[in-house]
Each structure stands twice: as structure tokens, then as C-alpha cells.
Amino acid sequence: MTSSPATGARSGQRPHVVERALELARTGLYRARWDISRALEKEGYTIADVSHLDGPSMSRTLTTLCRQARRPKAAA
């Protein structure tokens, strides 16, 4: 099987929930972990999968990435 450049997942397999959550956080479309959790559930991840994001460190990491991705970029 080949790896997907965007996710590192093998063809036909979706990425691990933590990997996917980090991808979503970096898009700038979400404000915090709660928004990402809802998006993951809509993508078909189970509540048990999404529970991997419940710890304070992961929650903080995702929220920080969301804020950084939503921050306006400085003009060059």
C-alpha cells in the first residue's frame, strides 16, 4: 500500500484520530478542540476514538494550533 502525502495514512485507511485532529486544527476552520471533536464525529470517528483528545495537554495543543492558524498573516 502507498502512503498519502497529506496524512501519512495508507491508501484506504483513514489517519489516526490524533493525527487527523492536528490536521484539522491547522486548517484555521476551527476555534477549539470541541469544534474539532464534532467534525471528527461527522467524519465517522467514534466517541471512543475522539476520547483520545480529552486530556488537558491535547486539548491545549489543539486550541493553540487553532488560534495560530486563525491568526491573520502579516503582510510580506
Rank of each mutant, 00 (worst) to 15 (best):
T7I: 08
D35C: 13
S4D: 13
T2P: 10
A25R: 02
L24D: 01
A39G: 01
R14T: 05
Y30Q: 03
G8Y: 08
G44K: 04
L22A: 08
V50R: 11
A75M: 04
A32H: 14
S59T: 10
L62C: 04
L40E: 10
G12I: 08
R38T: 13
R14N: 09
A25W: 03
H52D: 14
Q68H: 06
D54M: 07
R67M: 11
S4M: 00
T64R: 11
E19A: 15
V50C: 05
E41F: 00
G55S: 09
S51I: 10
L62P: 00
P72D: 13
E43G: 03
K42P: 00
A76H: 07
R33L: 09
A48W: 08
G28T: 05
E41D: 02
R60F: 09
I36A: 01
G8D: 01
R20L: 04
D54W: 12
A76E: 09
T46S: 15
G55L: 03
A21C: 02
G8R: 05
P72I: 14
L24H: 09
A9P: 01
A9D: 04
R26T: 08
L24M: 12
I47M: 01
A69G: 02
A6Y: 07
S4L: 02
L53H: 05
R60D: 02
H16P: 00
L22S: 09
A9M: 05
A48V: 14
E19C: 09
L62T: 03
A74T: 15
V18E: 08
L40H: 12
R67A: 15
R20G: 00
R60K: 13
I47H: 06
C66M: 03
P15C: 04
M1Q: 11
C66I: 05
V17M: 01
A75D: 08
T64M: 08
K73H: 05
L65F: 09
S57E: 14
K42E: 12
R60S: 15
A21S: 12
A76G: 05
G12Y: 06
K42M: 15
K73V: 14
A25I: 05
L29N: 11
I47E: 08
A74C: 00
A75E: 13
G12Q: 07
A39S: 13
Y30E: 06
A25T: 09
D35V: 02
S3I: 08
T27F: 05
L24E: 05
L29P: 00
G55R: 07
R14W: 15
S3L: 15
E19D: 12
R70L: 05
P56Q: 12
L62R: 01
K73D: 03
R26Q: 13
T46R: 03
E41A: 13
P72F: 11
T2R: 10
L62H: 02
S51T: 12
V17C: 03
R10W: 06
A76D: 08
M58V: 11
V50L: 11
A21G: 07
L24A: 06
A32S: 14
D49C: 08
C66R: 03
L62W: 07
S11G: 12
L65M: 12
C66Y: 04
A21L: 01
